[in-house]
């Protein structure tokens, strides 16, 4: 198994404990995390990304227990092995498209996928030197996907990647994520409440806050 979790629990300060179902995902597999808003989907994603520390249980990615890493090592491990696609693109506006992707290479100290090739595969090759302010919503989301893929991560996490996109773009984005994940042999986890995504990925777990 590439990614395994066991008895994950987490409590936000002043709130009751959330218990998460076990997750097992292998290379090239995709998994949906479903649930109502406020159910703790995003919290699970943050846990998986090592952005939050679980109160109980552990996450094992490619044999490494995330909670055993701290500080700089954890940041670097995340940069090298986990690609995150956020709900909104959140590109660095001071940099152009190309530089936004170079950032991923720089901080992870890893020469992943070739940027121009990646961009043209995602259909935004012509935008490489554009300011990110000139991109449309769909284009920006694709750039943020490219950023998540730039280091050829082992795990791709996507947090409601389609919530602000129309049907056509939703379809494209999900397809892209699936294709790219299987191409680089990464596990793909999409957190969503978007029904349109379900038709593409059958494998799912549900998060319920108790």
């Amino acid at each position: 198994m590439l990614l395994e979790t066991s008895y994950l629990q987490y409590a936000h300060p002043g709130q009751s404990m959330i218990a998460f179902p076990e997750i097992k995902v292998d290379k090239g597999e995709a998994l949906l995390v479903l649930g109502k808003s406020g159910s703790g989907k995003t919290t699970l994603l943050n846990l998986l990304a090592g952005l939050l520390n679980p109160a109980k249980g552990e996450i094992k990615l490619d044999g490494v227990v995330l909670s055993s890493l701290t500080g700089q090592n954890l940041d670097l491990f995340r940069g090298k092995n986990i690609g995150i696609v956020f709900q909104k693109p959140h590109l660095i506006t001071a940099l152009n498209v190309n530089q936004n992707l170079e950032l991923a290479h720089f901080f992870s100290k890893k020469k992943g996928q070739e940027i121009s090739h990646l961009l043209s595969e995602l259909g935004i090759g012509s935008k490489a030197n554009s300011s990110v302010l000139t991109l449309s919503e769909g284009e920006a989301q694709r750039v943020s996907i490219a950023r998540a893929l730039a280091n050829s991560p082992k795990l791709i996490l996507a947090d409601e990647p389609t919530s602000s996109l129309d049907d056509e773009n939703t379809e494209k984005v999900v397809q892209l994520l699936k294709q790219q994940a299987s191409k680089i042999g990464a596990a793909l986890i999409i957190v969503t409440h978007d029904q349109r995504v379900k038709s593409h990925i059958s494998n799912f777990i549900e998060v319920k806050s108790s």
Binding site: G79, A104, F107, N151
Partner: peptide
């Protein structure tokens, strides 16, 4: 702050 969070998410350390 968001930019900084993103940088952390793609591997930047606090020190950086």
């Amino acid at each position: 702050k968001y930019d900084l969070a993103i940088l952390r998410a793609i591997g930047a350390s606090r020190g950086q």
